[in-house]
């Protein structure tokens, strides 16, 4: 009985959204697929020609592409453990009873970094990490560190802002997990042992697993997407020290004008993303039939 409606009714409800999203989400992808199979340079549009999978071959054997990919993974590998460790710490503090007022304030403060415009985070980085009149060097006791102009420091700075912006997300996800632990079970465990570690490992951790997996997958996807903040802060430099995958594709397509090659890179990135999304769905939306 439930849910039996005519095909026409279903289409009337869902058709417009599907057509709309197909127009902006699929049509461009097909066009990118077409571009990726051609020699397609914005400055030489007269010479567009079909070259098969040559662009893909170039990408797959291109050191620069894999270096950017490796750099992106390295950023993830550096920032994510920090976010997890700090986030778990914050979640555990917020989970303790008492001090309601200041904890509410802390929870509200945690919302702010997450919502901040990426581009503004980059601009804040420019101002606060400036070597001469930046407040960061001042707070470090008048240090004279060149943050933006030095390859390694620039990378550290990107990690800092990524951690600043997304640790709150991890903290709130884990806090949501902690509040799922039934009160009686946690109480009973605390009567059995005084070790916080034991409680965390055997009682709370099982409730944190879904949140941890969500964080892992979404942070991976978001790091592959990362563009706005880095673009405003370092433009991928100095050299290519902060040129992550999305920035590199943008450079090849819009500053190198090679749309064919950039499209091939984008399609490969898309395939990686789809695999990731598959995993996400498998883990979280089993109940959707």
């Amino acid at each position: 009985m439930r849910g039996k409606v005519s095909r026409r009714t279903i289409f009337a409800f869902i058709g417009p959204a599907v057509i709309g999203l197909a127009m902006v989400g699929i049509a461009p992808l097909l066009y990118a697929l077409w571009t990726s199979l051609h020699f397609f340079n914005l400055t030489k549009l007269k010479k567009v020609k079909f070259i098969g999978f040559e662009n893909y071959w170039t990408v797959l054997t291109d050191e620069v592409f894999w270096q950017a990919m490796g750099r992106t993974m390295f950023l993830l590998g550096t920032a994510l453990p920090l976010q997890l460790a700090l986030g778990l710490g914050i979640a555990l503090v917020l989970h303790q009873p008492g001090l309601t007022l200041i904890k509410t304030l802390a929870r509200l403060s945690l919302v702010l970094p997450m919502a901040t415009t990426y581009a503004v985070v980059g601009l804040l980085g420019q101002v606060m990490f400036n070597q001469k009149f930046g407040v960061v060097n001042q707070l470090m006791g008048g240090a004279n560190i060149n943050w933006i102009g030095d390859p390694e420091n620039a990378f550290v700075m990107i990690v800092f802002w990524d951690v600043w912006q997304w640790t709150p997300f991890v903290a709130l996800v884990l806090l949501a997990g902690l509040t799922m632990v039934p009160g009686e079970i946690e109480e009973a465990a605390r009567l059995e042992t005084t070790s916080k570690w034991t409680v965390l490992r055997y009682v709370q951790l099982p409730f944190l697993i879904p949140g941890l997996v969500a964080v892992l997958i979404l942070r991976t996807a978001d790091t592959l997407k990362l563009f706005d903040m880095v673009f405003t802060l370092t433009r991928g430099g100095p050299g290519s020290s902060t040129e992550f995958i999305s920035l590199m594709i943008q450079r090849v397509g819009f500053r190198g004008f090679d749309q064919g090659l950039a499209s091939a890179q984008a399609i490969i990135l898309l395939i990686i993303t789809i695999i990731l999304a598959q995993i996400y769905i498998r883990v979280f939306y089993k109940e959707v039939n």
Partner: peptide, 27 residues
């Protein structure tokens, strides 16, 4: 409503959340 392809539609919607905007920006 119940209909065929519902699961695929879901998958597609969620994938859109994860796709890097640069993939769409070029075309």
């Amino acid at each position: 409503f119940e209909f065929r392809g519902k699961k695929d539609l879901w998958f597609w919607f969620i994938t859109n959340r994860m796709v890097s905007p640069i993939v769409l920006a070029l075309p």
